[in-house]
Design a protein around this nucleic acid. Sequence first.
DNA 1: ACGCCCGCCTGTAAGC
DNA 2: TGCTTACAGGCGGGCG
Length: 279
Amino acid sequence: MPELPEVETIRRDLQGEVVGKKIKSVEVRNGRTVRRHPSAKHFRARLEGRTVKSVGRAGKYLLFGLDNGETLVVHLGMSGQLQRAKSLKEPKAPHTQVVVTFTQGGQLRFVDPRTFGELFVSATTEGGAHVPELAHLGFDPLEDVMSWDRFWVLLASRKMRLKSLLMDQEFVAGIGNIYADEILFAAGLRYDRMSDALSAQEVRRLYRAMVETLADAVKHRGSSLADEQYRDLFGEIGDYQGQHQVYDREGKACRRCRATVVRVKSGGRSTYLCEHCQV
DNA sequence: ACGCCCGCCTGTAAGC
DNA sequence: TGCTTACAGGCGGGCG
């Protein structure tokens, strides 16, 4: 579910909530969530007694920097949520998979019905700046500024459909199905255009659309669809779904030209577009 | 190297 | 009112 804007929203809120807090205990209620570790006990042992020094993000991954130089990595998968509980007495939501209790009181709870999400502790280097398990991730569209020429070279070095490339985490980290469609609409480009066949103007439009769409979505605290599965740290829904131009708008009028937004299947997944505005 | 498929899971909505 | 099928913000692997 959550893509870069949702993860970044959670990260910003986490900074004020958990930095400086010491982990008293960790409860693993579903071992699948910590599957990279040999055991739940092993995962717990690497967290208990540690203090959270920072909260970062790499693509769709949250990175909790710990006082021993290691990093707690959290990926929300399709249905994962982090919930901040001020009191231990608050009833636990169904599918609560991991509970972190702080010595200063309060908990951080990982809730994930589909269990595609995961948590693991990484023996990071360079003071937590480098996570070996995430070395495959490409550049971060909001953190890593680059020139259009450089972006053009990267695009042309792959011969892929634009949507596949935007969603390829090894190329650029953090874009998923919602924002790929929104970015391509903003750029006026079809999902099936080839990445090595763009004009200079199209490359600039795509880069601008990528940065501005994601930044705008962060300002609106991410997208919550009809099922409202995406919730922030405090259980509030995002606001960006109201700004969507094409995603989940099949059959509705394009906000720019009034043509009908269509949905097509590509690679087994839904793609929404305006065939008049996107060429 | 890329496009397409599947599996991993649970919940919900649509279809018959 | 059922039962069955399709689909969902992700990711990794296998195949042609």
